[in-house]
């Protein structure tokens, strides 16, 4: 008998970790955040978004 390939996706679990609360006030990716701010400043939001909603 041929073994069937298991195509069922294994969904990971989500669990609260108090340790991660230490990052609450800390920006871990400052360069990315700078880029995001630049996009907001120069480009703004997609006009399509306002048509869609």
């Amino acid at each position: 008998m041929e073994a069937k390939e298991n195509t069922k996706k294994k969904k990971g679990t989500f669990k609260y970790s108090k340790k991660l609360d230490k990052y609450r006030e800390k920006i871990l990716f400052p360069k990315k955040v700078e880029k995001a701010d630049e996009v907001l400043r120069k480009v703004g939001l997609p006009k399509q978004l306002f048509k869609s909603s």
């Binding site: 294994k10 990971g12 669990k15 108090k18 609450r24």
Partner: peptide, 20 residues
């Protein structure tokens, strides 16, 4: 094709996540 996910930990405000 199905893709598995890793188990994830999250902060109380759900803004920081961690997995291995």
């Amino acid at each position: 094709m199905a893709i598995d996910n890793y188990d994830v930990k999250y902060s109380s405000n759900l803004m920081t996540f961690e997995f291995v």
